[in-house]
């Protein structure tokens, strides 16, 4: 593939940076218009709230607490969703058996899940379960669609030539499923962070980002609320980039 030259890079990233600057400026103007920091903290205020937080060990411990649990739910959902999708692709009966559960999982509101889950499990594990339940149907459905889109003529070719399972997977199945997988992971990542943090705000496990958000809300610490929200967005974006790089590195 051709490497982009400097001009193209400047154009690509320049536009991205300008777009971010535009929204930051709009946010700043809005906060100036609102005037009251209790309703709308400005980006500058958020930055000055965030910077001292970065030096506190507590801050990083809180991030680790939520990150580990939410990502655990996400990884578990990817593994389980993929296995279930493969089983459903191979067995019509299994597909029919699992389909109603997946439909129910897709339809139940996140809040219902969280409240129900709180009855069954400890708040400390809530974000793992909720992130798992939110991502599982996305992975199941999308990987299933990818498997269905596998080129049947190539599979026939592989059957005639007695191509082994591993080779078949590498040559035919993975290329067919990978684009679906990437889109499922992108959507799933967004969902797992939203749902995971929502679960923490409701369950309030000690030492979680959700707990910090909850405290910021009840004590009207709007700047902290904005700062933690920025942190969540940044973690989510960075984690998505990392996962995408890993997928590409693994595939190439």
């Amino acid at each position: 593939m051709r490497q982009p030259n400097n001009r193209e890079l400047i154009k690509k990233y320049g536009v991205k940076i300008m777009a971010v600057c535009f929204w930051l400026l709009l946010w700043q103007l809005l906060s100036v218009y609102v005037k009251e920091a209790i309703f709308m903290a400005s980006p500058v205020e958020v930055l000055f709230t965030l910077l001292p937080m970065l030096r506190e060990p507590d801050f990083w411990q809180t991030i680790c607490f939520s990150f580990i649990r939410i990502v655990a739910g996400f990884v578990l959902a990817i593994v389980t969703g993929t296995i279930l999708a493969v089983l459903a692709y191979r067995s019509f009966i299994f597909k029919e058996l699992i389909q109603p559960i997946i439909i129910i999982m897709k339809s139940i509101p996140v809040a219902s899940f969280i409240i129900l889950a709180l009855i069954w499990i400890k708040a400390v594990n809530l974000s793992t379960l909720v992130s798992f339940l939110m991502v599982l149907p996305i992975i199941f459905t999308t990987v299933g669609e990818g498997l269905k889109s596998t080129d049947q003529k190539l599979l026939q070719m592989a059957t005639v030539f007695h191509v082994g399972r591993i080779k078949r997977l590498r040559a035919i199945y993975i290329p067919a499923v990978l684009p679906h997988y990437i889109s499922a992971i992108t959507i799933g990542l967004g969902f797992c962070w939203k749902a995971g943090i929502a679960a923490e705000v409701i369950g309030i496990p000690t030492g979680s980002i959700g707990e910090r958000l909850y405290e910021a809300k009840i004590f009207f610490m709007t700047k902290e609320l904005f700062a933690w929200t920025v942190v969540i967005v940044l973690i989510s974006i960075l984690f998505e980039k990392l996962v995408m790089r890993l997928i590409k590195a693994f595939w190439q």
């Binding site: 190539l154 030539f161 035919i172």
Partner: peptide, 10 residues
């Protein structure tokens, strides 16, 4: 072994 009507290459 076969040559299919379409090439059926990866």
């Amino acid at each position: 072994a076969a040559v299919f009507q379409e090439d059926r290459l990866i």
